[in-house]
């Protein structure tokens, strides 16, 4: 029984850290959406900025991946 409380804590923690992935999704959507808004205003400048877009998305996504990593660690490693 005492083991199952520890189990419960692990799963709750993993579930909580999954929130971080959703928040990172908001961030990625923000980056992509703002890029699109800017690109539609000035389409000629958009082509040169795709690299910047991907760098921004990568940075935003990395934080979501960190929280996913925390979830994985809680589920399988702790």
């Amino acid at each position: 029984m005492e083991g199952s409380i520890a189990e419960m804590g692990k799963f709750i923690g993993a579930g909580l850290s999954a929130f971080g992935m959703g928040l990172a999704a908001i961030g990625v959507g923000n980056v992509a959406g703002n890029f699109l808004a800017g690109a539609l205003r000035n389409p000629s400048a958009a082509g040169g900025q795709t690299a910047t877009l991907f760098i921004g998305i990568a940075f935003a996504e990395a934080l979501g991946i960190f929280s996913f990593l925390v979830a994985l660690l809680l589920m399988f490693a702790v």
């Binding site: 990395a62 991946i65 960190f66 996913f68 990593l69 994985l72």
Partner: peptide, 13 residues
């Protein structure tokens, strides 16, 4: 750290 975790994490996920 972020450079490596990003790649491994994405593929793992």
């Amino acid at each position: 750290v972020s450079h490596s975790i990003r790649l491994a994490g994405n593929i793992t996920a």
